[in-house]
Simulated assay, not measured.
Amino acid sequence: MALATVGGCGSAEPSQQTETDDSAVVLPIIPAGTKADSILVDKSDRTLILYKGDEEIARYGNIRFGDTPEGHKRFEGDERTPEGRYTINGRNPGSRYHLSLRISYPNAADRAYAEARGKSPGGDIFIHGQPNGREGAPLASDWTDGCIALSNAEIQQIWETVPDGTEIYILP
């Protein structure tokens, strides 16, 4: 299902998907048809792990975050990646980045915190690949507005393995 969004890392601007050169990326082997039922993101270790039950089915390292990676996202424009429990609640094959899976940020607590301070919590937080049209290796430093970025090959594999409704836990 394509999502129409207005801002954030995974903004929907219909565009042609382009592969980047991520030939050095070694993908985990996931048996065909395997579907994850939870995701663990550890910001301090820069890992994203897919689980089916208690079994780890794939691990991705060296993931990238918002320009301000430490701390929980509180407000629109703070360039932080959220921390806490969310779900994958949509997918966008036509975003400005190679594929994007929407994270359900903000939740009720995030909205209440921002509202109590007269601010917007922001939104449009995704797991996605590299910017469309980018050539060469994946960007080497934190560069998103709060999203979680991987290589195009990695997001392709995650896209195929993670259904909508999958729980995602993002640790500091």
Rank of each mutant, 00 (worst) to 15 (best):
I103C: 05
D54Q: 15
Q156D: 02
Q17D: 13
G84C: 08
E83W: 05
A149Q: 02
V26Q: 05
H72D: 15
A36P: 09
T166G: 09
N152F: 00
Q17N: 14
S120G: 07
P28F: 02
A36Y: 07
G8N: 06
N107M: 04
D78S: 05
T87H: 11
G84I: 06
P163R: 03
G136K: 08
G7L: 11
L101W: 08
G71W: 04
G71N: 08
I88N: 13
G133I: 05
E83I: 07
S44A: 15
L99V: 04
A58G: 10
N107K: 08
S15E: 11
I88M: 12
G66I: 02
G84W: 06
S15N: 10
G8L: 03
G77P: 07
T34A: 01
P131W: 00
Y113T: 05
I168V: 14
K119A: 15
A140H: 12
G71L: 08
S15G: 14
G84Y: 09
I148H: 04
E56S: 14
E154R: 00
S100D: 03
S23K: 09
G136M: 08
L150M: 12
A36G: 05
G133W: 02
G77C: 04
R96P: 07
T5G: 15
A2I: 14
V6F: 14
P163W: 01
S104R: 09
S141W: 12
R91K: 15
G84R: 07
T18A: 07
W159E: 01
D110T: 08
P163Q: 03
D42P: 11
V26A: 05
E55P: 03
P31L: 08
Y105W: 06
A24Y: 00
L139I: 14
L40H: 13
G84E: 09
P106C: 10
L171M: 14
I127Y: 01
E70W: 10
L171Q: 15
G94R: 11
K35I: 01
G53A: 03
D110R: 09
K73V: 01
P14I: 09
G146M: 01
A36I: 04
I148Q: 05
Y105P: 14
C147P: 07
G33D: 03
S95E: 02
A153E: 00
A112L: 13
R80N: 03
D124R: 08
D37S: 07
R111H: 11
R74K: 15
P131G: 04
T18S: 12
G61V: 12
I57Y: 03
N152E: 00
G129I: 00
K35C: 00
T166F: 06
A58S: 07
R80K: 13
A112I: 04
L99E: 05
E115N: 15
H98S: 06
Q16T: 14
